[in-house]
Amino acid sequence: MKSKIIITFIGVFLGVTIFTLVGFAGPSTAILIPGTIGDNPLFQEDIKGAKEAAEIAGLKEPKVVEGGDDYASYEKKLISLAATNQYDILVTFTDSMADSIVKVANMFPEQKFILVYGDIHLATEEIPPNLFSSKFRSEDQGYLAGYFAGLVTKSNLPNANEELKIGIMMPDIYPAWNDILIPAYEHGAKAVDPNIEVIQSVLGSWVDVSKGAQAAKMQFAQGVDIILLLTGSACMGAVDEAKVEGKYIIGFNTNIIHLEPDVILGCVLINNREEVKNILLRAYKNTLPFGTEEVVGAKEGVVSFTFDDPNYKQRVPEEIQIAMLECYKRLQNGEINPLGD
């Protein structure tokens, strides 16, 4: 009897202690950025999201490791992070990490891994049980941007010209952009008018701003009146050029309208901050289904557009705003296949 009480007591004590210890120490998180934070506002948002999640859960601030420019080192860094056993959850991003994270997840079955906006199926058919992957439907982004560009180039906006040409500019060539984003952009534009032509420029540098300006100049001379700028600070040169030439820009991933409200008409957004926050919070609550993949896009509200931006509301003609909302709804309802049929 006595012993039972003692055992129960000890059991409760241990349980409470363990619970408090776990609760106190909590799961710790490390984030590996495959690249440099500065080049990519997306990563900055990701980190903010992760920090918010930790704050809400009352945990230590996540450790952020910048991968730098040596692509070959990311995998080793991920292994190092896993090998330390200091972190419960390792988060990393993009398609380029898919292969590595699967490999490392298999190496360290006790460690939990999360891949955000990367297509895990590039690496494996069978997702390791300690890995959760969240993929963004970048085709939704591309389609929205393309539809908007199409509407603008056909509109009566003061700087929209007669020619049915829209542009897209990227700092470098990426398979994910080439295979998904650009075709979706084209589809979006062609949904407005099948005669719209898409012109693309690649800068070949993430940092050469003047190159961005010069490439934009060439596009405008070709008759392009609106350019979608993919990530990369080098593209900032194009904003400046568009301002001088009196043309339009569509921002990508983050809302940059405030930089040049006259020029940047709209931005296709990715609410990755919320998404990262949600994923991590679920992970902290042990509700994240590890071993599976989630695909999020317009439907989940992760991909959206700057519908609420005051500058957008003020400067973009109402009929375009309405058409965009309509398009967004149809995307959410799955009525549109952004990549065509």
């Binding site: 420019d69 540098s205 940092v207 701003v209 300006a213 600070s233 900032m236 040169g237």
Partner: peptide, 13 residues
């Protein structure tokens, strides 16, 4: 100066 940005990295602006 025309764009008000500095971009570092191994190759550089």
């Amino acid at each position: 100066l025309p764009v008000g940005v500095f971009l570092g990295g191994p190759v550089g602006m």
